[in-house]
Computed example of a mutant assay.
Amino acid sequence: MSSQRTMAVVGAGVIGLSWARLAHRHGWRVAITDPRPDLGELVAAEFGSDDRVSWTADLTEAVRSADLVQENGPERLAVKQQLFAEILRAAPADAVLATSSSSITASLIAADLDNAGRILVGHPFNPPELMPLVEVLPGKKTDESTVTRAVALYSELDRVPVVIRKAMPGFVANRLQMALSAEARYLVQSGVVSVEDLDTILQNSLGLRWATIGLFEGNVLGGGPGGARHLFAGVGAEVELGKPSADPEAREQLIESIENAYGSGEQNYRRLVDKRDRRTNAVLEALAKVDDRPAVHASPNV
């Protein structure tokens, strides 16, 4: 990897700063831009006086030398369209221009923009410095060469980019998460299991399994030597999944159960972040060891 790579981080919120830490850890230069008045203090608190990290309220200045622009602004289409219109005018001709959006597609952002072949979605699983997945979703105007460059750049950052070829609300990872979450809420609301016990079940079954093999790969193992074909042939009647209650009182009861189990507030949030980061790093390091590849350790931050 060239030490001269530069990431322009547009938006210095939780996701943006996590991208910045990731790029910085990999030896990239990082230019951070955000209109917030305390940007200088925020960057100094994160990176000190490191000359590989710069900050400015001027979007044009921030993206001028970028290999990868990673936009992390508000989830509002009009805002992103305005940002990318400015980014297109100022960024290098070969820069990949990506949005971290979890819901707004590149096609919508680029709808009224000319020469928008460099725009795509680079959706991380939060936080990007810790979770390897990046969903790469090109838009109708995105050049295939931009997709190729995006995959290469994210790979240099030791992320796992997966190209999504059809836009659907929530893309892929969040759709899977929402489906599982809906059934989990239904089971808790129905009195089948407590909040704590449901999490214990996931951690000690599906969570552990899916950290090591995929769902369809598990189907092969589930069918024994006959593989997925044998498993599917023997599957019985499908289970009808439940629908969580939309009643405000039931929702409030669920939230209270979650808060009783895991707490709330700033200090508690930091404690849970530390727990998540330590455990996730341990899993990543263990997998790297057994797969005989370098471990990529994320810093213990949000």
Rank of each mutant, 00 (worst) to 15 (best):
T146Y: 01
T146M: 05
R149G: 03
A150P: 00
A150F: 03
A152L: 05
L153N: 05
L153F: 08
Y154H: 09
Y154D: 02
Y154M: 02
S155C: 02
E156T: 03
E156Y: 03
L157H: 06
D158F: 10
R159S: 12
V160H: 14
V160G: 00
V162G: 02
V163H: 01
I164E: 05
I164Y: 05
K166S: 14
K166Y: 05
A167K: 12
G170Y: 02
G170A: 01
G170D: 01
V172W: 06
V172T: 03
A173W: 03
A173L: 11
N174G: 05
R175L: 04
M178N: 13
M178L: 15
A179I: 03
L180Q: 03
L180D: 03
L180V: 12
A182W: 01
E183I: 07
R185P: 04
L187G: 14
V188N: 12
V188F: 03
Q189M: 05
V192W: 09
V193T: 14
V193R: 13
V193W: 10
V193I: 15
S194C: 01
S194G: 09
V195L: 06
Q203L: 12
Q203V: 00
N204K: 09
S205K: 09
L206I: 14
L206D: 09
L206S: 12
L208F: 13
L208T: 10
R209H: 08
R209F: 04
A211D: 03
T212F: 12
T212C: 11
I213N: 07
I213G: 07
I213E: 04
I213H: 08
